[in-house]
């Protein structure tokens, strides 16, 4: 049985850990609120650009663009999104596991990897994946510029063409309690993006007479598609960022609770030990006294 002193030390250390995890939980909660509102704030742009893109697509002769071209998926590029920092539960390991599964499922293809987030980069490197590009330390100050840079790289590789399809593995922010792990095809852009298949749901532009174009329609269409890709990647980054904070908050909450349980148990054990020590002392005194009396 540990001594009283050992219990005290142990208790102090657990208590300190609890204070830290509690503080981290509150920080994560605050960051989560910010990240969440950014996810929502980015939606109007994504929605509008899709609408304008569709209506432009209807008006160009043939919506042809390198980013729309479909090829046999022989060479794949995979974007792996994780966090830069740890202590966020299974957030990163889930992604890593999925990336490994993706690798096994596509052994017959040529795979290229891009890591976004320090954690994923380290894991992929350790497992010997060759990284085409890596973006670390971007989540602390996530900006649309990051999305643009990644989109330029990804779009470039696709258009060149060095890869035939681009996938993203990331955590989507569902709500505070859950993140959904997603494997999503980023490129080629889904045909319904420009085909207007869901156009019925959009406001009816078909009734409108044709546009006056300040620029040739094809030129507008051409510069719009990359922007759509940028906004898609920005959305993925924001989702993952918000998911990270949610995961951290949940993990730190659990850690704080565990620490509290541990403190309770340790306190109880320590008191028992103290009792035992006191009892032993009394017995010694009493039996000592009895011995002298006799």
């Amino acid at each position: 049985m540990p001594t009283l002193l050992e219990y005290r030390h142990r208790l102090r250390s657990v208590n300190q850990t609890k204070q830290i995890t509690r503080a981290m939980k509150f920080v994560a909660a605050a960051q989560l609120r910010r990240a969440q509102s950014r996810v929502f704030a980015a939606r109007p742009y994504a929605h509008e650009i899709l609408e304008v893109l569709r209506s432009a697509a209807e008006r160009v002769e043939q919506p042809i663009h390198p980013l729309l071209e479909r090829r046999a998926e022989r060479r794949l590029l995979v974007l792996v999104l994780t966090s830069d920092k740890g202590l966020c539960g299974a957030f990163n390991s889930n992604v890593a596991r999925r990336a490994a599964a993706f690798f096994r499922a596509h052994k017959d293809r040529e795979l290229k990897w891009i890591a976004v987030g320090r954690r994923g980069r380290d894991t992929l490197r350790k497992q010997g994946f060759r990284l085409e590009a890596e973006y670390v330390d971007i989540f602390r100050r996530l900006d649309f510029e990051h999305a643009r840079e990644i989109a330029r790289r990804v779009g470039g590789l696709y258009a060149e063409p060095q890869v035939d399809a681009v996938y993203a593995i990331y955590n989507e922010f569902k709500n505070v309690m859950t993140q959904k792990l997603i494997v999503e095809q980023v490129l080629p852009l889904a045909p319904e993006v420009v085909a207007g298949g869901a156009a019925g749901k959009l406001r009816d532009r078909r009734a409108e007479p044709d546009y006056i174009y300040e620029d040739p329609p094809q030129a507008i269409f051409d510069s719009m598609l990359p922007r759509y890709l940028e906004s898609e990647i920005f959305r993925i980054l924001l989702e993952s960022g918000a998911g990270e904070q949610a995961a951290r908050m949940t993990a730190m909450d659990a850690a704080t609770n565990n620490a509290a349980d541990l403190i309770e148990r340790l306190t109880l054990e320590m008191n028992k030990a103290r009792q035992a020590a006191i009892t032993k002392e009394i017995i010694e005194v009493v039996s000592g006294a009895a011995a002298t009396a006799a």
């Binding site: 304008v52 409108e208 006056i212 174009y213 300040e214 620029d215 329609p217 507008i220 510069s223």
Partner: peptide, 14 residues
């Protein structure tokens, strides 16, 4: 610069 008043013809520009 383009001036737009209500009822403008549909137009798209960069």
């Amino acid at each position: 610069y383009l001036g737009v008043l209500p009822g403008h013809a549909p137009l798209m520009t960069e």
